[in-house]
Design a protein around this nucleic acid. Structure first.
Lengths: 330, 330
DNA sequence: CTGTTAGCGCTTTCAG
DNA sequence: CTGAAAGCGCTAACAG
């Protein structure tokens, strides 16, 4: 393992000088020494020991990213956005997937704290369990006390900068658009109640329906993924329109209806939420509420990296997009 | 920032003792002292400084993962597999996306080397450019000389442990299956020629056709993504069957045909490669060659972490799956 | 079982 | 502009 000292010796300069040329220092170094050091470093194949650097500097160049599930395109898109800004700033990203287990999220924050990452990004819906939220907050507070920065994509429950998709509003507008199509009787394919995002979508949708004087929707719960959508959809009957609280659940619903010989949109309309890019070529194409996923990741990391604020909330509104999976009734 | 020393002082023990209880040491510590240390650590909210630990130990607990594109479900699936084994071993993963730029791949290896990660996983097709391969190899060799472990998912061109999907064989078997359906005239929606995986698939498919005495397929090049598939498909005519070298290109092709009023599979059959999970509910469902993606990620990291080998090659064979997007011509 | 102590490799005052 | 030296926080002999 070649160290800075080896380089300094070979170049015939001091450790300090070698450090100054090889690592971004504000201090200037004379051209000839600089050249010598660079040559020596190249010859020896020197690679900075980042651990030593981090220890000496008291600050690392990595950011932590905690997501629920990387194979869910929702998270992949947000992560991609965040990673692009990380890369543009010369930061590495350390990633953890919780598989929707709040405890794991807490554990990751602790680990990332130990890593002394520059910032941590928590991506994904918060949970309703106040105890979990409290413990996570405690962990985050401790991390922040030691100078860590935190941002969240989800709901502002952690006292940190947050990018929050307006789930209630998006769902409400979707409900109004669907009602505008003539639908009166709805079913909602809801996610688990302990996740706030799907719950908000259910509530927003229901509230809008109520405002319009329409019958309350039938709410069917399932897991927040394709299987959950499939399972919940099997219980649907007697409605003209189904709202799945996210696109992957909607895909499950589509499959379920297909298996039951129910045509979409002829027999029943289906709408989702998120506008997952990978699903754009679905047939029938999915009506949904578009969220600027990659952008949310970008903004979240920007917030985390920008020291000039504290617990800022940036609301992102979704855009209703009606495609083939929903049809007008009359 | 509370340090081990603070904990030791508060607990009234030596630094060494505190270290032994708080960090996995083989050495035993008496129950009463152990309790004192744990109490002190909890009271103070102590968090190990991993950078210091890494420096002192000379070994880190993170692995590096380099993929082309995280929003491509192919990579997300493999990454997920690798991350699961990392998690099970208490390792964190640092991730980098190259967006298919070989130079970035080299740069990431260099950075990960600087981070002194325990192992690095290179996921994705190698390129044909020998100069790039050479430079990457040089960088990897340097990393390995200093004790780093490397594994690759793709082709064994780097002299490291590699999980290689048998692209030629998979494509050949697909060709035979399709020919078995009665198809004689094929077009291939090929990826860029500088990527080995798509090139191998084209060759394997073509070779099988030749063996069967069938006319050579028309090869249409496009980028290795949905857009590339769409674009290449617009030039298809006069064939009964189209082979897109991966599923996302096949999805593009499906969209293209739909836009042109060409029915699949009635007018033309379409097959892909990879069997992307997210696309399982496509209509028509896609015929393809299934690769055990998550598993490949698992095995690759296992290889990297298992010191008992050197440049092992583990071949993964795909399984032809015929679904609705291809039909028999008999 | 417990404590002392010498580093790990790099950064950063502080002098010159 | 350059060098000497004091740590950063933790681990791992080595001694007791």
């Amino acid at each position: 393992m070649v160290t800075l000292e080896d380089v300094a010796r070979q170049a015939g300069v001091s450790l300090a000088t070698a450090s100054r040329v090889l690592n971004g220092s504000t201090r200037q170094v004379g051209a000839s020494l600089r050249a010598k050091v660079e040559l020596a470093a190249a010859e020896l194949g020197y690679r900075t020991n980042v651990a030593a650097q981090t220890l000496a500097r008291g600050a690392s160049n990595v950011i932590g990213l905690v997501v629920h599930d990387l194979t869910d395109p929702y998270f992949a898109a947000i992560a991609d956005g965040a990673m692009r800004v990380a890369e543009s700033q010369g930061l590495m990203v350390m990633i953890g997937t919780t598989h929707r287990d709040p405890q794991r999220e807490i554990a990751y924050v602790s680990t990332l704290n130990a890593q002394r990452v520059r910032a941590v990004l928590l991506v994904g819906s918060r949970v309703t369990d106040p105890e979990m939220t409290r413990r996570l907050r405690t962990e985050l507070d401790q991390y922040r006390e030691s100078g860590g920065r935190v941002a969240c994509v989800g709901q502002n429950l952690l006292g940190v900068d947050t990018v929050v998709p307006d789930n209630r509003l998006g769902a409400a507008e979707l409900a109004r658009a669907l009602a505008g199509l003539g639908h009166r009787n709805f079913a909602i394919l809801a996610g688990p109640d302990w996740l706030i995002a799907p719950r908000d979508r259910v509530e927003g949708f229901g509230a809008a329906l109520e405002e319009l004087g329409l019958p309350a929707p039938r709410v069917l719960h399932g897991s927040f993924d394709r299987e959950g959508g499939y399972a919940a959809a099997t219980q649907v009957s007697g409605v003209t329109c189904v709202f799945a609280v996210n696109d992957v659940m909607a895909v499950g619903a589509l499959a379920s209806f297909r298996d039951r010989g129910i045509r979409v949109p002829e027999d029943v309309s289906v709408a989702g939420f998120d506008d997952i890019f990978t699903l754009r070529d679905l047939v029938p194409s999915l009506s949904t509420v578009r969220l600027p996923l990659a952008d949310m990741g970008v903004r979240a990391l920007e917030l985390a990296l920008d020291p000039s604020g504290e617990s800022r909330t940036e609301i992102v509104t979704g855009e209703v997009i009606l495609r083939e999976s929903t049809r007008g009734l009359g």
